[in-house]
Design a protein around this nucleic acid. Sequence first.
DNA 1: AGACTAACCTGAAAGC
DNA 2: TGCTTTCAGGTTAGTC
Length: 292
Amino acid sequence: MPELPEVEVTRRQIGPLLLRRRIASVITTAPSYFFLTEPDVLRRKLRGRRIERLERHGKYLIGTLDDGSRLLLHLGMTGQLFGGGVSSVRLLSATRGASLSPEAQLVAFTPDRHTHLRIQFEDRGPEVYFRDTRKFGKVQWLAAEEPSPRLQLLGVDALQATAARLLAETRSRRVPIKTVLLDQSVFAGIGNIYADEALFVAGVRPTRRAQRLSADESARVVRAVKRILLRSIETGGSSISDYVQPDGSDGAYQDERRVYDRTGEACLRCGASIKRLVIGTRSSHYCPRCQR
DNA sequence: AGACTAACCTGAAAGC
DNA sequence: TGCTTTCAGGTTAGTC
């Protein structure tokens, strides 16, 4: 569910709760394919460590631990990271600086069967939870220097996209342009909402064969992608079905959607009825008049 | 290599 | 009021 903006908003909000605190223990659910690293291994590797950095590449969050190992997190469709816990608010106030009104970032929460990770810290302050109802999310521990095939497959982060790269990639592909935008090995981070939104802004129909994209259109698409992703981050991401920010509040970008999930509604630019069709199993939305 | 599909899950909403 | 079907911000393994 979360795309680049939601993951970036999550990174910024969860950072203060996750970074530089020594991990006392990790509680997990039973083994499942959510765990690329077995839960018992994960618990053992994380105990006693501190996360020094939290970076994002596409939709992946990458924590670097104080022993050089790394923690990979992917939110999948329904994954959510947030801080909270019993009696943690008071303790957090006592242990943290007053930069961000820490209380506002915590959610009153009782772990349930979908809470696959529960991280507790030695400072006894707020816990960090990773909850994911559908289990399409992923967690993986990587030893220091251990390469990650998943990360290696990713293209440059979508905020670093270039028209030249998109144009080069499209030359040999006869799939719809939208399929190329969703391909994480081209640009990492674009998902179903922002692919539709960017193509609308660029005036390109999602079904257009990649090979038929002009250099000018490639530039427009890349510009639209970046503008829309940055704007969505500013507004806290999109809250369409169940995504909420780590502090529990809704993002606001869904209010700025131009086509996604607006089937049958009027195009905000020309008034035509927004169409929906399926491209490679993903529902796609576009304006038949504004997008050619 | 590129293009498709099926599969991994759960829950909400719509259809009957 | 059920029971069934459809749909969902994602990715990967397998087949042609």
